[in-house]
Design a protein around this nucleic acid. Structure first.
Lengths: 249, 249
DNA sequence: TGTTGACATCTGTATATACAAGTTTTATGA
DNA sequence: TCATAAAACTTGTATATACAGATGTCAACA
């Protein structure tokens, strides 16, 4: 991986200790001063580590008191955010399986081509995710080419992100996601074994590299009875809108 | 508000300039060095401001080049996170209306009382959100008492967060959210004017203060045909799980 | 007993400095 | 002209210092 700096290593170390209850929920971490001594670093470095844990929801910083370990881990680990199915599988200990239904080089449908130039080539990838043997999610990915020049079948079956990051050195940076509830196309309905009205939860995402170039367009169709999205959010007080005033007549 | 420090004021100022296209999408912000001169501060302060904008998805920092303004604003403003309906209404310019259906002091149902002591009193609040005159969301809130001692009808109709933060000085800090799709109770189905199978998107949230005390338990029932959740997420590389190994026999 | 006030401890904010590392521009030289 | 190297910029990381502000402890005192 690419965590070769102090603040990330310290954050990672403390995160693992929180997970293993070496730092127990409802207790305080050692003070920043003590952590400085423990890790042999300056206070600013420790503070940047703690800020990462704060943002992830592992701790709550309280002025004048310390950093309190929260106990929400079981519900709200990195489900939100950009996490591959493989990583989720490992983290949550699910009994999941991925079946690759299709992998071919095509063009991105113009309906999906958001701000793309015409005739954008891509790898189209369709994968069915099974949990405990039951179909749960159908993923349809377009991996744009460029930048993705090759896509081995093995990577599709295993983990695309591991392949892109570790094999090709891609820097996956951010994504936008949109969750809606829609009526599934017949093909999807069939593969997910849906009955009734055929409603699915549709998660559309656009994923970008560190240079802000788009490289992945995904539509994930989830069985509504098995869909669960958990999120941790901090209240932000930076707003981009000024107070609305009624226009003067 | 409580933004009385430099880094937040600078972040806010730059965010507004991005919104008004003074800093246009696909262009770079002034360098950190120039921003130091512009605002008369040190580089670390500027960097903390930029880090906030980076986290919100307004900019992308690129090493060696600068801070690129992203153009995802229209889709992914602060819908994720902790934002009151009133704030969303203002930000997105929706034609929305809130009708208070119920406001009374009761006990929290034991089914919802997660880790609470017995017989926790609370204000129960039921509100229907209408968009363009059509029922869209039914919110059911329990505001725990303590800490919420009084809850004026006016605050329920206007904005609870504004009341708690500005009037009472509460520090709302973080929330956990869980999104599922479920069959709505008859009472909810009726109020939302639902047909068919009566499926709704259910958003359950637990909201906490800065001292980590729980103060709000919410269930939001959304009409599935009008539900849309958008999110911006950065790839985090801090993981709390070590690589799984097959157990040795 | 109960309150006040001084003190120690903790996090929050801001500044200054130094060097590493990636990118772009400029200058150099064949 | 073209390729290479140097320089000038950019962000990334780490350190040290200073003071503000919140919290808890404990002794002094009424």
């Amino acid at each position: 991986m690419g965590l070769i700096n102090k603040q990330n290593m310290i954050a990672q170390d403390i995160a693992i200790k929180i997970k293993h209850k070496i730092y127990a929920p409802q207790t305080f971490l050692p003070s920043e001063h003590k952590l400085c001594e423990l890790y042999g670093t300056s206070r600013e470095t420790i503070r940047k580590s703690l800020e990462q844990l704060n943002e992830l929801g592992l701790i709550q910083k309280i002025k004048g008191r310390g950093s309190l370990v929260l106990n929400l881990q079981r519900f709200t680990f990195p489900i939100s955010g950009i996490t591959s199915f493989k990583e989720l599988n490992q983290t949550l200990g699910m009994h999941a399986k991925t079946v690759v239904l299709q992998l071919e080089k095509t063009m991105v449908p113009t309906s999906l081509a958001v701000g793309l130039s015409n005739e954008q080539p891509a790898f189209f990838l369709e994968r069915l995710r099974l949990i405990d043997g039951e179909p749960d999610v159908l993923d349809r990915d377009y991996l744009l080419s460029p930048p993705v020049e090759k896509l081995p079948y093995q990577a599709a079956e295993d983990s695309i992100y591991a392949y892109l990051e570790e094999e090709l050195g891609f820097k996956i940076s951010y994504a936008t996601k949109e969750i809606t509830v829609e009526s599934a196309p017949a093909a999807v309905r069939e593969k997910l074994n849906l009955s009734g009205e055929g409603l699915v939860v549709l998660v559309r995402s656009l994923t970008y590299l560190a240079d802000t170039s788009l490289f992945q367009i995904t539509a994930s169709y989830h069985r509504p009875d098995k869909f669960k999205f958990t999120d941790f959010a901090r209240r932000k007080r930076i707003l981009t809108h000024t107070k609305e005033r009624k226009p003067q007549l």
